[in-house]
Structure formats: C-alpha cells, structure tokens
Write a protein that binds this DNA or RNA. Sequence first.
DNA 1: CCTACCGATCGGTAGG
DNA 2: CCTACCGATCGGTAGG
Lengths: 221, 221
Amino acid sequence: MTPRTHTRSRGHERTARRTRGAILARAVDLASIEGLEGLTIGRLASDLGMSKSGLFGHFGSKEGLQLAAVDEAATRFASEVVQPALAKPEGEQRLRALCAGYIDYLERGVFAGGCFFGAASIEFDDRPGPVGDRLRDAIGAWVGYLEEQARVAGAADPKLVAFELQALGQGANSNFRLFGDPKTFARARAAIDAVIDAQIARKPRQASQRRSGRKGKSVRG
Amino acid sequence: MTPRTHTRSRGHERTARRTRGAILARAVDLASIEGLEGLTIGRLASDLGMSKSGLFGHFGSKEGLQLAAVDEAATRFASEVVQPALAKPEGEQRLRALCAGYIDYLERGVFAGGCFFGAASIEFDDRPGPVGDRLRDAIGAWVGYLEEQARVAGAADPKLVAFELQALGQGANSNFRLFGDPKTFARARAAIDAVIDAQIARKPRQASQRRSGRKGKSVRG
DNA sequence: CCTACCGATCGGTAGG
DNA sequence: CCTACCGATCGGTAGG
C-alpha cells in the first residue's frame, strides 16, 4: 500500500515488465522442449541476447524462474483450452469441449515442444519442493475440472472418467511427440468420444440437480 | 571369430562384466528417477564407490551409457511384463495379461522412479540421435505387440485399442508418480477392462483366422 | 580399474 | 541492465 514508485522508476518498471514477459514467453517454449531443469539461465539469456545476470535479476533464483514459467504456462493453458469451453453449458457439452480443446491445443502446437505440463510433470513427479507443488496444483486443477464436469454430466464414476480423459490427452501428446504420427490426434478424439459416450448416463437429471443444460446439440454455441 | 582372449584376460572380462551389470542396475533406477540426461557419470560413480573414469571406460561415452541403460531397461521390461503374459493364449487373453502385467509392474515398483520408458521417452521425444531411436524402437515394439494381440482378438481398430491401452498405462504411471494415490492402479485396471470389453468383438472368428483361442474365461490359466 | 587433469557450463554474487 | 568473477560439476582425456 505504501507508494514505492515515483515517475522515473515507474518507467523502468514498465520496461522491466516487458522484458520479463519476453523472457517467460521464450522460457515456456524452451521448457516444453528441454524440460524445466534443462531450461538454463545461460541458454535462455543468450537466446534473448542479454546477459545471464541481467536475466537472473528478474527472478532471483533458478527456482524463481521455474515457478514463473509454470505460472505463465498455466495462464496460457487457461486461455487456450479452458476459456473457450466456457461457452458451452456445464456437463457433457463442456466436458467434450474441454477435451476437444486440449487436443486442438496439441495440434496447434501452442508450446514448441508439445504440452508444457506433460513434459514438466514427469520431470518433477518425484521431486519435493515448490516447483513440483505448483505443477501438481495446475494439473490437479485441470483433472479436477474434468471430474467436476463429468459429475454434472451424470457420470457414475467421475474420478474414473477424469483419469481416462487426462490419460488419453497425455497419451496423444507423448505419442505424437515420439512418433510424429498426425493420425494420433484422430485416434485420441475417437478414444475420448468413446469414453464420454460410454460413461455419461443419458438419463434425465435427478431432482436434486436442476441446472438448465439440455443434452441435445444446440445449433449455435 | 579370432580368439582375442587368453586365460588371464578372461578373468578380467568376467569381473568387468559383473561391474558393468552392477553399474547398469543402478543406472536404470537412477534414470527412472532423474531421467536419462540427469543420469550423470560422476553421480553414478560416487553412488557405486568407483572413479568416474573407471566407470566411463565401460561405455566410452555418455551416449554409450544411455544406450546400455535403455537396453537393460528393455530386457527387464520383457522379463517382468511381456514374458509372464506368454503363458496365455494369443488374442484377448494375452492382451489382458499384458495390460495387467504392466499395471502390476508399476505397482511392484520394478524401477525406483516408476516406468523407465515413461520418463525417458518424454525426455528424448524431440531429440534426434541413437538414444531416441532406441527408445522409439522399444516403445514401438510394446505398442505394436498390443496392436497385434488386439488384431488377433478381433478388434475392429487394433491401432486405436493399442493407443488407448498404452495411454492408460502411461497415465497410471504419471498419475501415481505425481499424486501418489494408490487408487490410481484400480482406476487404470477398470479403464483397461472397459476398453477391451468394448472394443474386442465377441463374435465367432472369421474363417480366415482359425487359431484355437476360446473367448470364455478358463478356470485355470 | 586409478589419479590428475582439461575446457565448458552450471547457478549465483559483487559491484557498478 | 552490464562486466567480471566465484566454486562446483559436467563429459571426457592422458597416462599409468
């Protein structure tokens, strides 16, 4: 709350923020390729034509850079995958839109090395510390959201549905990265449709759930 | 074919082979945790109480060590997962046994850091070179074998079945590593059963396929 | 299999 | 934001 800036430093802050954004844009791409640990300060600095210590100053430590990269990736994931699906009504339609959005995001190549979280989570899956925690938070939020929508859609076992959908998405990512077969995406879409078709009950809603969401396809989103 | 060894060097070769085996046993565990690139010669040497250059001499380069580690992991995978399933008749039963064997192998913790290939494949998925190639070979052989058994079992789209089964297995691995929830394995088994139940046609075999394999459950394996 | 070393690069600091 | 530096560790080599 105390005003810490005056006219001159405010201009510095603006440029610093822009620099920081440029660093993070490159950092998430690099991390999606080389991993969050392979993301070295020296490499990142030379990529961006700046000095190591200049870059370092923005984050204070390598861990600070990694945390900022996870946050940047989560923001991008939210706007690329989650946000577009919010146009659909909750339940089956939104669940389908979330999964379709994820496969589209892989196919569009939003990150240079495939899904940022697919790469980073395997790298940090058995390392304690704040970076692993932040990754668990981000991935847990995604799986939890799939589960929530599966529950609204009336699935008998929403946790199972969420597990399957997340696994198929990750499988599409790693399969495409490893073998480069573009048919992977069609296979993933077919598998996702099959899971939702099989596990979402098409019965009328129970009395306790009285949200509007009709099940039929609406002509316009 | 030229005899290159005499009595004295043969004894040296025996001990060298034993040392090499001990190195690789530790190497695959370390690589399953830290990744194939994080597997450093210095760390591995100090873990085993030997000098860097002594260890180095067994493999000639870091790449040589990585290739040997992939081969060691593939051998272990074959004996832990594939070989036990060969007791079942080809087709649906063997397909089920392969998938069950994979989940069991995760649950038993055959490698200290979960599935060696799950970790290594994501690390090398966009790197050219012999290590990536060898990983693609090993993983491609596994997926190809699932596909073959799905085809024998009469699946309409064996490639799709193989993709789904492999993705669910990888999903179980990464989910368990990341969140440590032991229910993951039960979920993966349920998901695998659902895929096989849904996609393996229970029709009588076509005339062109005349292997014996009955579809009903036999009382004893 | 060892000791002793090489140049390169790592994360990070001092000082401006 | 920079130059100049630190100790540690990397993969790899020489020589025995």
